[in-house]
Amino acid sequence: MGREGVPLIVIQRQLGHTNLGITSIYLQGIDSTEIFDTVHARRAAMIPVEATLGL
């Protein structure tokens, strides 16, 4: 993803890291196939309806 121009902050969110530095370190040593597998294996984040409607 990094080689494809995806911003580091987007990759950070997809991997669930709270620290951007951790994401940067991971990207230096992880094979891109492993990153794709990790992202695809994650469940999509669910936002409660109440949060989006302001209830």
Rank of each mutant, 00 (worst) to 15 (best):
M1K: 01
G2V: 12
G2N: 07
G2H: 01
G2Q: 02
G2L: 10
R3W: 12
R3V: 10
E4C: 11
E4I: 08
G5Y: 04
G5R: 04
G5H: 03
V6F: 11
V6Y: 06
V6S: 01
V6N: 01
V6G: 07
P7Y: 03
L8C: 05
L8H: 04
L8K: 03
I9D: 10
I9G: 08
I9T: 10
V10L: 13
V10E: 15
V10W: 07
I11A: 14
Q12C: 11
Q12E: 08
Q12A: 11
R13S: 08
R13Q: 15
R13M: 07
R13E: 13
R13Y: 06
R13G: 08
Q14L: 15
Q14G: 10
Q14S: 14
L15D: 05
L15Q: 01
G16K: 06
G16H: 05
H17S: 09
H17R: 06
T18D: 07
T18L: 13
T18W: 03
T18V: 14
N19Y: 04
L20T: 07
L20Q: 05
L20M: 10
G21H: 02
G21M: 07
I22E: 10
I22G: 02
I22T: 13
I22R: 04
I22D: 12
T23Q: 02
S24Q: 11
I25Q: 08
Y26V: 13
L27P: 03
L27C: 12
Q28M: 04
I30M: 01
D31N: 10
S32W: 11
T33F: 05
T33R: 06
E34G: 05
I35S: 00
I35N: 04
I35G: 00
T38E: 01
T38G: 00
T38Q: 03
V39R: 05
V39F: 02
H40I: 09
H40C: 10
H40K: 14
H40W: 02
A41I: 06
A41L: 01
R42D: 06
R42K: 11
R43T: 05
A44T: 12
M46A: 12
M46W: 01
M46T: 10
M46G: 06
I47W: 01
I47A: 10
P48A: 14
V49N: 12
E50C: 15
A51V: 15
A51S: 13
A51R: 15
T52R: 15
T52P: 05
L53S: 13
G54D: 04
L55R: 15
